[in-house]
Write a protein that binds this DNA or RNA. Sequence first.
DNA 1: TTGAAAGCGGTACCAT
DNA 2: ATGGTACCGCTTTCAA
Lengths: 345, 345
Amino acid sequence: MPTSKDVAAAAGVSQSTVSYVMSGKRPISEKTRLRVEAAIEQLTYQPNAGARALASRKSQVIGLVISITPEAHLGSLMEFIAVIAATARRHDYDVLLVTDEEGSQGLERVVGQQLCDGLILMQVEADDERIPVVRKLRVPVVFIGIPNDSAGLNCIDADFARAGELCVEEMAAAGHTSGVIIGWRPRLVGSRLNYVGRFLGGAEAAAERLNVKIKHVPAAPDRASVEAAVEACIAEADGRPAFVSPDATVLELLPRILRERGLEPGKDASVIGVGPTPEALIELQESTVLDIQPKVVSRRAVEILFSLMQADNPDRGGLLELIPPLVTHRYGTADPHVPAAQPIH
Amino acid sequence: MPTSKDVAAAAGVSQSTVSYVMSGKRPISEKTRLRVEAAIEQLTYQPNAGARALASRKSQVIGLVISITPEAHLGSLMEFIAVIAATARRHDYDVLLVTDEEGSQGLERVVGQQLCDGLILMQVEADDERIPVVRKLRVPVVFIGIPNDSAGLNCIDADFARAGELCVEEMAAAGHTSGVIIGWRPRLVGSRLNYVGRFLGGAEAAAERLNVKIKHVPAAPDRASVEAAVEACIAEADGRPAFVSPDATVLELLPRILRERGLEPGKDASVIGVGPTPEALIELQESTVLDIQPKVVSRRAVEILFSLMQADNPDRGGLLELIPPLVTHRYGTADPHVPAAQPIH
DNA sequence: TTGAAAGCGGTACCAT
DNA sequence: ATGGTACCGCTTTCAA
């Protein structure tokens, strides 16, 4: 592998000149710049990342922290990751994948070893054990998800409260006066998946406003559990039942389960929900589906992180940004409309 | 951040001794080792990755190259990634995510900058444009997927030929004398997704052997396309139709499409297929599903890469390993059985 | 068994 | 506008 020294020799300049040509941090005469660039080209020189990181104290890498739990919807997760990686590259950064198998120690490790200049934490839980650790880290961190104690942290997430509202509005517009929200087990909702709580909050507010009734039925994201919830709802429903859920897996199951019971979604029953992957959308064309815009959320997460890193202001923070959901599918049509944006700064 | 110099000072030894304590590359007296370890602990010292990479010429990072195409099943992809990352960590390596947005240049970049010591390429296509590039790289590379010209390359994949056989055997065992394989568009099969070709090969061999008829119907992995294929098959089927597919998305669609046409999968029609994610399995309980064992494939990919890197033998290669599929679900039961393993070395 | 010192390949300050 | 050079923090050879 050629080094910048080789380039310098080939171009007949000093090593520092090569460095300055690459970084543009000081003016270089047209003539020498061309000579250096030619030498770089000719030798197919690429700067050594380790040496650069050592000298500049910047790795040009961001750490992406994901957790593979049984609750995680892998397709959705992948969608986030893809956008984050692509956005990072556009800013000339690479992405190091950190799984939570190491727990919070993994965070301390990648930062301690100075493998990366900043972190994005995904699937942030209500009472996330990583938070106290993160507060001590000396690099900027962006959370995807909003923990209970978010003071001083940079968080971004889909606006699940708004999504809850939209779902209930949709439900009312479809002529229902009551409906059922299939959520998660209470324990999970309280301690971990607090977006469900936000969703319920928005849904309840809308229900009150529109004078419709909603009932929250906890369930696990598996077939048996959702079936049980559905049975219960059908039993006590008068007229067409309506099902609402903030969970992609539940949403994938609902149409099937209803059909097995002779109810055609969009006709005999309404299915309204949030957050599926494109694949799931294929399955859900006869339902109302809110897209929580993972692409926007993850792109913004990266952008926020970069602004923090550029500002060289590691401990500044306390940004909360909510991305409004889109209604992407409505009973068979794919006619997206954008609700009023309500980012909070 | 404390450096190894700080540790040395605290322990009253030289910097090199600290290094040797950490690497174990030369004998250290019990006494000094304990002193150094105490100092490390006390200062919470972590070695600087860049400096280490620079001095040792090893980054302890592997590059994981993925491509986000419309055909990619994100959930399956995520499953691979998770296992690869976890396995890498167990060998004390980190994972750098390389998306193919940069194309083959991305590979040249991460290797050229010496960001990583080896690569794993996923979703390798029949006539993959990355292959000529990879052949020139000076680091070990493992392919997940088998290109047409695999000479001298280290490839690993699920045994789709065997999967094709198993599917047809299953079909025959379920009493069918004929069936339909829903595959991909011919153009894709030829130039790109050649696992489909291998699947078909195995299926055809088994069909001949068992004296059943199979027909290959190309389709895109979307609803309309699969529906058209299904319609055609139902029209010309005598008795219960059987549907076989090597594609996860198609497999997710099939049960629904059949039910809409009044056919209950597992009763009025058979659905037999390969490779879905755990989420999809929920949907497919009434079908026969072969698991292509992404966990095994990806774990082996990492292990092979490490053995290549340890051997310090970058250009050695030409390993082909096939992981046999498991039958994980059979018409409602979850009773896995393992076919005879047939790895090829 | 341990220490001193020469790199590894860049960056950026201080000169000119 | 350019060159010389002192680091950055670790590994490893050579010496003791």
